[in-house]
Design a protein around this nucleic acid. Structure first.
Lengths: 110, 110
DNA sequence: TCAAAGTATTCGGATATACGAATAGTTATA
DNA sequence: TATAACTATTCGTATATCCGAATACTTTGA
């Protein structure tokens, strides 16, 4: 079995799809909130300050792209992170961002 | 100095902006190509198989979000990665993706 | 200063994504 | 089975993003 160019392209598209799932502040907040403690939709919505339908729609995007999975608990649905490394990747990017901000601030101090 | 809620929100927005810069297959290919060897716009365009204007537009997005920086070399412009950890983060996400694909394949094998 | 090479931008149109509001679906329990 | 609680979807609309084609800008060297 060998990687054809079109398979590689498909993986790159999936790679981009994951990044695109991360490309919204509310979804980033949702992922961190779920990581901190798996919870149902309404609780997550309250936690990050968005409406229930908005939370449901954002969670659907995260679910479709495989970043979270849903477990039904009675009438509610509990969302879980599928892979801790998603948080690691987010943390890494946030570190890059914070370093950049710190660097710019240091330039202003001079 | 303390983080106000609105400053935190702003950082999360910048965090999402970085992810949004990664949320396109051609920009992912550009970042890996630049990482492999800093090059000018036309060479990068040929390398990943897109037009020069498309490459220029995608590079502009990466530049505006601080993922790459441009250095003029005579009539051409050489693009460089600003932070190796961007590749680390992309690699991490690709590993998550590959593991998921492998897992699904193993389910089919059973 | 003019032509060539390289890069960036603009334009118009197509597609994607986001929201609030309203509503429909699902589950448990009385 | 009826109700309450929770979740998901639909609708209409607004905004963002992408592309190809054409064009404008910048730099070098004749």
């Amino acid at each position: 079995m060998e990687d054809t160019p079109s398979l590689e392209r498909e993986v790159t598209q999936l790679h981009a799809d994951i990044c695109s799932a991360l490309a919204d502040p509310r979804r980033i907040l949702l992922l961190y909130a779920i990581f901190q403690s798996p919870r149902n939709v309404s609780d997550l919505a309250v936690d990050i300050g968005i409406s229930q339908p908005a939370a449901s729609r954002h969670l659907k995007i995260l679910r479709e792209r495989g970043l979270v999975h849903a477990i039904r608990r009675g009438a509610s649905v509990e969302y879980h992170l599928t892979d801790q490394r998603l948080i690691d990747a987010l943390d890494l990017l946030r570190t890059v961002l914070r370093d950049r901000i710190a660097y710019r601030a240091s330039l202003l101090d001079q």
